[in-house]
């Protein structure tokens, strides 16, 4: 008799919990749906892929499954969506400059291609978010229509303004100081971007260079530093591309503990010949977020591979 009463109580409690959970699942407002100020304009096939795989988090339109509204889950979903919207919002596409729009599309492709996006935890329970190899190919072909050609013309040789480093070397908000000694480091690689019109030379300090040689780059050892120098590309009269206007020097400094919140790397950028320091600590989160696409090489993109 006692057992029977207990069973009744347990059954009733479970029933109530089920009803409450179901009610919450259908009524919980996880996130707001602000108005769409300007949507992505792209061919239908491309738009469909982004709409399905990215819009649920990266737009103002809310696409939630019933289980996204469950107690405990809803708060995690809300956090993910708000973070995603802040980084890239297809519903507020008009707020980006044309250059920023293109940069966002290249980044989105690379994040999807590397498997970082859609978030694996999200894709595991939202099977419709997965992007197939054929769809990646569609995105690639679309991006190739946006490939940037160099039209800037190289001026005839003129005396260059001599560089003059400030006596007090600038320091980025991340605490990283400009390091002129990178000029003594070995070249790691050189890249020519066609998603924009820049060219770069990457230097690795002795610790980083040794790590590459020893294949100990996932994770990189503390003390490894990569410096990247960026110029605008210009074309000379023979069609050869050369470095034009200097844009910036960027550093990635490895310290797993100090920079734990940005994947173990500290980020710094010094722009224009005046070496104006950036990024802010918040922007460094964006740097780290993007560099997750290079997870296989410990967060470093510009390593040449044996293809």
């Amino acid at each position: 008799m006692k057992i029977s009463n207990r069973l009744k109580i347990i059954s009733a409690s479970a029933g109530i919990a089920l009803v409450v959970t179901a009610a919450l699942s259908f009524t919980t407002r996880v996130v707001d749906a602000p108005p769409v100020t300007g949507d992505l304009q792209a061919p239908a096939a491309v738009k469909e892929i982004f709409s399905r795989a990215c819009y649920p988090c990266h737009s103002n339109t809310v696409h939630l499954k019933w289980f996204d509204r469950l107690p405990g889950v809803a708060s995690l979903v809300r956090k993910d969506i708000l973070t995603a919207r802040k980084h890239l919002n297809f519903s507020e596409w008009d707020k980006l400059t044309p250059a920023a729009q293109d940069a966002a599309l290249w980044e989105a492709y690379n994040m999807i291609n590397s498997g970082v996006m859609p978030l694996p935890s999200y894709a595991a329970v939202h099977s419709d978010a997965k992007v197939s190899a054929a769809e990646l190919s569609t995105l690639r072909n679309y991006l190739l229509t946006k490939k940037k050609n160099v039209t800037a013309v190289k001026q005839d040789s003129v005396a260059q303004t001599a560089a003059a480093l400030p006596k007090a070397l600038p320091t980025a908000p991340t605490g990283i100081q400009f390091m002129p000694e990178f000029r003594q480091w070995q070249v790691m690689s050189t890249t020519s971007r066609f998603d924009n019109t820049t060219m770069r030379v990457m230097y690795a300090n002795p610790i980083a260079m040794q790590a590459i040689r020893n294949k100990q780059i996932n994770p990189w050892p503390d003390g490894a530093i990569i410096a990247k120098v960026v110029w605008e590309k210009v074309r000379d009269k023979d069609g050869i591309i050369q470095p034009g206007k200097f844009l910036n020097v960027q550093y990635m400094v490895r310290n797993a503990e100090r920079y734990e919140t940005t994947g173990g790397w500290g980020y710094a950028k010094f722009e224009t010949p005046a070496l104006k320091p950036s990024p802010t600590l918040l922007e460094a989160q964006s740097c780290a977020s993007c560099h997750r696409a290079a997870a296989k090489t410990g967060g470093i993109f510009d390593l040449s591979t044996l293809n």
Partner: peptide, 15 residues
């Protein structure tokens, strides 16, 4: 020789 970067579509790298 220039080759496509394996980790960033949109970039060539020295090969």
């Amino acid at each position: 020789r220039e080759q496509e970067s394996k980790f960033w579509f949109g970039s060539y790298i020295n090969g």
